[in-house]
């Protein structure tokens, strides 16, 4: 447990040592801010629904950029050997890196809290969906971080890790919009696999255990896959 904490803190600090954190955060804020506010005043609604509905797509490009370095960089410069020969288990490493990335995405969301504050001045803002939205965003970010972590564990090349991560996250995001291509028998299954609907449920302010269970399962499956990859590669 202690080892997970040490690794997570180290990885989290690493983001802010290199320029990557500042680039990714600015990019995220510009993209979401622009898409949200460019249409915000047209509808005259005081809510954040459009902001949250954009998150799955932006996350599926932003989060792989955050997670791509987690394993690839270490393998590339060789520090992976140093890490693995210290008294830590594979689980400690995978979880530590996962928490660092999730914490980083959560801190990336902090500046966006200014949106609901700003909106509450110009209209009646319903707090339920906002809190639900942020909770859902953290679950979604955690799930995508586990996907990105897995992608990073596969290769020593960060660009390849980014592309694999994007492909995985993007697939999960758009899966429930591709339902009309699917045979009717598996539609409900595919709908369950897609991440967007679960996220949108939570962001409406409805906290359903099925949605929570979905995100926890995705996180578990991909951290476990990362563990298997680490185990097989050494």
């Amino acid at each position: 447990m202690k080892q997970i904490k040490h690794i997570a803190i180290k990885e989290f600090k690493d983001y802010f040592i290199s320029p990557i954190a500042y680039i990714v955060i600015s990019l995220f804020l510009i993209v979401t801010g622009w898409f949200f506010f460019s249409t915000f005043f047209m509808f005259g609604r005081a809510d954040l629904r459009d902001f949250f509905s954009l998150l799955p797509i932006t996350f599926s490009f932003i989060i792989p950029a955050i997670t791509m370095r987690l394993f690839s960089e270490e393998k590339n410069i060789g520090s992976y050997e140093v890490l693995l020969t210290m008294p830590v288990s594979f689980t400690d490493i995978a979880l530590g890196k996962f928490f660092a990335a999730t914490l980083f995405t959560a801190s990336m969301l902090i500046p966006t809290i200014s949106y609901p504050i700003f909106i509450s001045f110009i209209g009646e803002l319903d707090l339920g969906p906002v809190i639900g939205g942020y909770l859902g965003a953290i679950f979604l970010a955690a799930a995508y971080c586990s996907l990105g972590l897995f992608a990073s564990s596969l290769t020593r090349n960060q660009i390849i890790a980014f592309i694999i991560g994007c492909a995985l996250c993007f697939t999960l995001t758009i899966l429930d919009r591709l339902l009309f291509f699917m045979p009717t028998k598996i539609i409900s299954f595919i709908e369950y696999i897609g991440a967007s609907s679960h996220f949108m449920n939570i962001s409406k302010g409805i906290i359903d255990s099925r949605d929570i269970l979905y995100f926890v399962s995705v996180i578990f499956i991909f951290i476990f896959s990362t563990y298997i990859v680490m185990h097989e590669k050494n």
Partner: peptide
């Protein structure tokens, strides 16, 4: 390890 591969940015 050979050639001490450490974290460069720390």
């Amino acid at each position: 390890p050979e050639s001490a591969p450490l974290y460069h940015n720390m």
